[in-house]
Computed example of a mutant assay.
Amino acid sequence: MDPSVLSPPAIPPVPVVLVHLEECRAARAGHEVGTLRELARQIAELKGTGVAGEFDPTLTCAAHPYLIPDHTLTLTEAHRLGVRSVRDLFGGVVPFPFVATKLIAHPLTEDAQVAPPGWSRLFGEHTASLVLPGYSAFSHDDACNAARRLWRDGPVRIKRPSGIGGAGQSLVANMDELETELAALGEAALRTEGIVVERNLDPIETLSVGQVTLDELVVSYYGVQHLTMNNHGHRVYGGTDLIAVRGGFDMLARLDLTSDINEAIRKARAFDAAVQNDYAGFFASRCNYDVAWGTDAQGARQCGVLEQSWRVGGATGAEIGALRTFRADPLAYAVSASTREIYGDDVQLPDGASIVYQGVDPHAGAITKYYTVDRHILQGSADR
């Protein structure tokens, strides 16, 4: 008899988990890097291994690396780092850098003169009903033309493509104000980075819709973000409350949800599908889409995807908490999980809190980040 017949099947080697720093490289002592390292440790624990440190291209790994990068990778970076699929990283891979930014949440105007290499006009057609009214632009003239179209219905909001938490935005009501914003950016940067010109909504509410994949486990969720006061007296991101389910986006639809939440989930799912269809090479094991509702100057209600994140984010602690729950309890299909970011020294942690970061950041000051999980199984049925 062939001895190989009696041999047990080969067990894939446990990957070595590595943190890959690029955007946070200059702030190795800050809370962002500290948070990334702790989240990486907890992800490695879920995978049954440990964190081997930071990725070093000059060293050869004994095992296949599983990367946790601080930014969305491009295909070029992914190939260089050995990332081939969602099983190789916690994050995402895009064919061109602009795909990872807010820019793809809006089309170019029909008569736009400038577009970056790889821009998909077809994607803009597929997502027109899924996003808020607005345009992306890569030149002074294209930005002005986009603003003129939107000014017919009130003020417009100018957004830098990589702004986080409301940073890099301004409200412009006329050409003089727009010219000031464009001059501050500069034509060269405008052609390289682009800009978003979007109809202003006031008031506005935002819901997050996301999905994470870790090995064989898929978790999908929706969540509400909260603001808090930082050590400098500014209102900033303060955490997210998630409702997470075992499985894909279709499992969220089986919960008893309001029409607004169902609409947000539907638009996020369709946006995600359009990215996969229209930008070849894209894949992600961590997706998060911000969907907004608001009222424009004409009193019309608008709902659409604002932006996307395919990297570790503010809600990742809660995502890990949900992954842990579903891994530990095969019967659980829906849980609630929350993250919190609290500034200052006097922090009272709730029972069962898992700390993600606690320390004094050189710029942000004293800050504590943690997450909690409510193991209560929500009403409804996964078989409904």
Rank of each mutant, 00 (worst) to 15 (best):
L39R: 08
L39F: 04
Q42F: 02
Q42H: 08
Q42S: 11
Q42L: 13
I43N: 01
I43Q: 01
E45L: 12
L46I: 05
L46S: 07
K47L: 15
K47M: 15
K47S: 13
K47D: 13
K47N: 09
G48Y: 04
T49H: 02
G50H: 09
G50V: 14
V51I: 01
A52M: 08
G53S: 06
G53F: 04
G53L: 10
E54M: 04
F55S: 09
D56Y: 02
D56E: 11
P57Q: 08
P57I: 02
P57A: 10
T58H: 09
T58P: 02
A62Y: 01
A62H: 09
A63M: 06
H64T: 12
H64F: 06
H64L: 11
P65C: 04
Y66R: 00
L67I: 03
P69R: 02
D70Y: 03
D70R: 03
D70E: 09
D70C: 06
H71I: 00
H71K: 14
H71P: 00
H71S: 12
T72Q: 11
L73F: 02
T74K: 02
T74G: 04
L75Y: 00
L75Q: 14
L75F: 00
T76A: 15
E77L: 06
E77F: 00
A78H: 04
A78T: 11
A78N: 13
H79W: 03
R80P: 00
R80K: 10
L81G: 03
L81R: 02
G82L: 12
V83Q: 09
V83N: 04
R84K: 09
R84Y: 02
R84L: 13
R84H: 12
S85P: 03
S85W: 00
F90Y: 13
G91E: 13
G92Q: 08
V93G: 11
V93T: 13
V93Q: 10
V94T: 10
V94Y: 00
V94N: 06
P95D: 09
F96G: 00
F96N: 12
F96E: 15
F98P: 01
F98N: 07
A100P: 00
A100R: 03
A100S: 15
I104S: 06
I104K: 04
I104M: 03
A105G: 10
P107A: 15
L108S: 06
T109F: 11
T109N: 12
T109I: 14
E110P: 05
E110V: 11
E110T: 13
D111A: 14
A112H: 05
A112I: 05
Q113N: 12
Q113K: 14
V114Y: 10
V114S: 15
V114A: 15
A115G: 09
A115H: 08
A115S: 15
A115V: 09
A115P: 06
P116F: 01
P117F: 03
P117W: 03
P117Y: 02
S120K: 05
R121P: 06
L122V: 14
L122P: 00
F123S: 10
F123D: 11
T127C: 11
T127N: 06
T127R: 04
A128E: 15
S129M: 07
S129R: 08
